[in-house]
Design a protein around this nucleic acid. Structure first.
Length: 286
DNA sequence: AAAGGTACCAACCGCTCTCCT
DNA sequence: GAGGAGAGCGGTTGGTACCTT
C-alpha cells in the first residue's frame, strides 16, 4: 500500500524541466541534489536531477557517435578494467559512464551474441584484439589521412608523428613496441593506461603545437599511436598515456594451437569477416 | 501499409561508498 | 564506532525510432 509518491515525476524530461534545472544550477551550482530537487520546483528526485545533469545537460557533455579513437580506447580500457564504466569515462572527456556502458552493451555485446561467445570470455577478448581493434586502427588511419593537410608551418610535431606512426599497415600478430611519439620530458612511457600513471601537461608547454583547425576530440583528444597516445583532457591539458599494443596484438594467454584454431575458424568464414565484422556498422558514422 | 522485431539510449533502481555528526 | 544522508556506480528497464517481412 502506502500513499502515492507525492507528485514525483518520472520518465523523460521535458524542455521546461531542463530549463529549470539548468537555471537552478547556474545560480547555485552542482551538488546537494536533494535540496536542489526540493528548492528548484522540479518534481523530481535529487537522484534523477543529478543523473539528468551529469548525463545530458552538463555543458561539456559530448553527444553523438563515438569516434573510432574513442571506441578503441574503450575496448582497451575495458580489457584492463572490466565494467568500471565511470573509470573508463574519466579517460574520455565529455563522455559519460552511461554512454560508454550503452555502447558496450549494444555494440560490443551484440557482436558477442552474434558469435555465440560470452563477451567476458578470453576468446572474445582475443577476437577484439585480433580483429576489431586493428580494424579500428585502420579506420583511425583513414580518418587521419582524410584530414585536410595543414600548412607546413602549422603542422605540429604531434601531427607529423601521428601520421607517421599511423600510416603503416598493421599485420595480425605484429608486435610493435616503439617509443611513444609525444616527445616530452613529461611523457610517461609506462606500459599501460591508468589515471595514476598518466601525466597531465598544461598546454603552454606545447606552444609550438598549434591546434589543428579541424581539431576535435576525434583528432586531438586521442592522437592514437601504435603504442601510445596523447590527448587533450577537460582541463585543456595534454594527457600522455600508453596503449599497451603489445598486450593487445602480441602474445596472448591462448596457447599457440588454440589461437591458430580460433583464427583459422575466423578467417575461413567469410560470413564472419564480412557480416559480423562490418566496421561501418560498428562505428556508426553519421 | 501494417505488424513484428531490433537497436539504441535515457532514465530508473538498488546497492555501496564516503562524509559528517 | 554507529548511524544517517548524500553521492556515485553498475545493472536493468522502458520508450521510441528504425528496419524487416
Amino acid at each position: 500500500m502506502g500513499g502515492p509518491c507525492n507528485d514525483i515525476r518520472r520518465g523523460p524530461w521535458t524542455t521546461e524541466e531542463d530549463k529549470l534545472l539548468i537555471h537552478y544550477i547556474t545560480l547555485h551550482g552542482e551538488g546537494r541534489w536533494n535540496l536542489l530537487a526540493k528548492s528548484s520546483g522540479l518534481k523530481r528526485t535529487g537522484k534523477s536531477c543529478r543523473l539528468r545533469w551529469l548525463n545530458y545537460l552538463k555543458p561539456d557533455i559530448k553527444h553523438g557517435n563515438l569516434s573510432p579513437q574513442e571506441q578503441l580506447l574503450i575496448l582497451e580500457l575495458h580489457s584492463k578494467w572490466g565494467n568500471r564504466w565511470s573509470k573508463i569515462a574519466n579517460h574520455l572527456p565529455g563522455r559519460t559512464d552511461n554512454e560508454i556502458k550503452n555502447y558496450w552493451r549494444t555494440r560490443v555485446q551484440k557482436q558477442a551474441r552474434h558469435l555465440k561467445i560470452n563477451s567476458n570470455s578470453k576468446r572474445f577478448v582475443e577476437i577484439l584484439r585480433r580483429f576489431w581493434m586493428p580494424r579500428l586502427l585502420e579506420k583511425v588511419e583513414q580518418d587521419l589521412s582524410l584530414l585536410p593537410t595543414s600548412s607546413s608551418t602549422t603542422t605540429s610535431t604531434i601531427d607529423q608523428t601521428v601520421h607517421q606512426n599511423n600510416l603503416s599497415s598493421l599485420q595480425h600478430g605484429e608486435q610493435i613496441m616503439t617509443q611513444p611519439p609525444c616527445k616530452t620530458e613529461n611523457l610517461n612511457s609506462s606500459s599501460s593506461i591508468s589515471s595514476s600513471n598518466s601525466k597531465a601537461m598544461v598546454l603552454p608547454k606545447y606552444s609550438n603545437v598549434p591546434i589543428h583547425p579541424h581539431a576535435d576530440f576525434a583528432y586531438y583528444n586521442l592522437s592514437l599511436q601504435r603504442n601510445g597516445y596523447c590527448y587533450v583532457n577537460n582541463n585543456n591539458t595534454f594527457e600522455a598515456g600508453h596503449l599497451d599494443m603489445q598486450a593487445l596484438m602480441g602474445p596472448t594467454d591462448m596457447s599457440a594451437t588454440e589461437f591458430q584454431v580460433a583464427e583459422a575458424d575466423w578467417m575461413k568464414d567469410d560470413d564472419l569477416a564480412g557480416t559480423f565484422w562490418n566496421m561501418d556498422e560498428l562505428w556508426h558514422t553519421s
